[in-house]
Design a protein around this nucleic acid. Structure first.
Length: 302
DNA sequence: AATGGCCTCCGGACGC
DNA sequence: TGCGTCCGGAGGCCAT
């Protein structure tokens, strides 16, 4: 696993976790719950969280955007991995790894463990009818790989937004589940510079972005995502999509299309990877050909 | 009122 | 080695 990448679970990685969990925990009954780090549990109180979970059986595992939805008898456990949350399925005798914050014990000496180095992940336990009230989950926009997400939909969102297109694509109320990696990848494939103001984009740009998003996300799902960190040990194979990445993490390397160097800068407060030759910078762009002449900090030479 | 941008949470990685 | 800085998803806050 020497090719483990430092990245954050986005839709494809969460979907990969969902599929793994589905095979591992559906039909299992929770016998006890240990919470070692209270901050992960946002609602209800930690004691109620544990008490209500005990005795419930997992009926299914869903996903909406980057949220995992663990369906129980009467409740739904809503889990967001944020930066580095991950699940693992273990024997109760397996040594407990560092940063293990929550443990769900099942029958037969098996456990689902939640680990999270950054401690940013969250869990909420809600009764099923209250699911649509949870802030964040409640406000999500369309799923990028479902009907309704297309150039026209994006154009409607773009028209009223003056922010950089990257910021709009990262806005979960517009599209659910995109994060830094796949936005950079999709914009590269659509040949749109991330600093373009959304409202200046043409319908053609919006259509190109929509199809690039769909393509990147569906291919990443097929490959099991590109985040090794979010896999479920033993089952979900490590993702393979990192080998398909064209710009993310390739600072200083050659663009596959034109051979010029991939440049890294900052847009919407995020590290942003661009081929300034294939993605024409708008006027006043901070990531432009000029800035690309300044030597990159590190060429990822292998 | 809605929008955009900045700050916060945290600790590992990295630079000096 | 030791210390400071950086990084980021989403929620909170504030200015416009």
């Amino acid at each position: 696993m020497g090719w483990e990448m430092t990245d954050v679970p986005e839709l494809p990685e969460v979907e990969t976790v969902r599929r793994s969990l589905e095979t591992l925990i559906v039909d299992r009954t929770i016998r006890s719950v240990d919470v070692h780090l209270n901050r992960i549990v946002r609602s209800p109180t930690v004691s109620e969280f544990c008490a209500r979970l005990v005795g419930q059986t997992v009926r299914g595992v869903g996903r909406r955007g980057k949220y995992l939805l663990i369906d129980l008898d009467t409740d739904v456990l809503v889990s967001h991995l944020r930066m580095e949350g991950r699940y693992g399925f273990y024997s109760a005798y397996d040594p407990v790894e560092t940063h293990t914050h929550i443990v769900f014990q099942f029958d037969g000496r098996t456990e689902l463990r939640y680990r999270d180095v950054r401690q940013f992940g969250t869990m909420d336990l809600l009764e099923r009818p209250a699911l649509h009230l949870l802030p964040g989950l409640r406000d999500l926009g369309v799923e990028p790989i479902e009907a309704g997400f297309d150039g026209r939909y994006l154009m409607t969102a773009f028209r009223r937004r003056r922010a950089p297109v990257k910021a709009v694509l990262l806005d979960q109320t517009v599209v659910a589940g995109l994060g830094n990696i796949y936005v950079d990848e999709a914009l590269y494939r659509a040949r749109v510079h991330p600093e373009r103001r959304a409202h200046t984009l043409s319908a053609k740009d919006a259509a190109a972005i929509a199809s690039a998003v769909r393509e990147v996300i569906s291919q990443a799902i097929e490959q099991g995502g590109s985040s090794v960190k979010s896999y479920v040990n033993g089952f979900g194979k490590p993702g393979g999509y990192q080998f398909a990445l064209q710009v993310y993490g390739r600072t200083g390397q050659a663009c596959a299309g034109c051979g010029s160097s991939i440049v890294k800068g900052r847009v919407a407060g995020r590290g942003t990877h661009v081929c300034v030759h294939c993605q024409r910078p708008p006027r006043n762009a901070t990531i432009s050909r000029k800035s690309s002449d300044v030597s990159p900090r590190r060429a990822g030479v292998k």
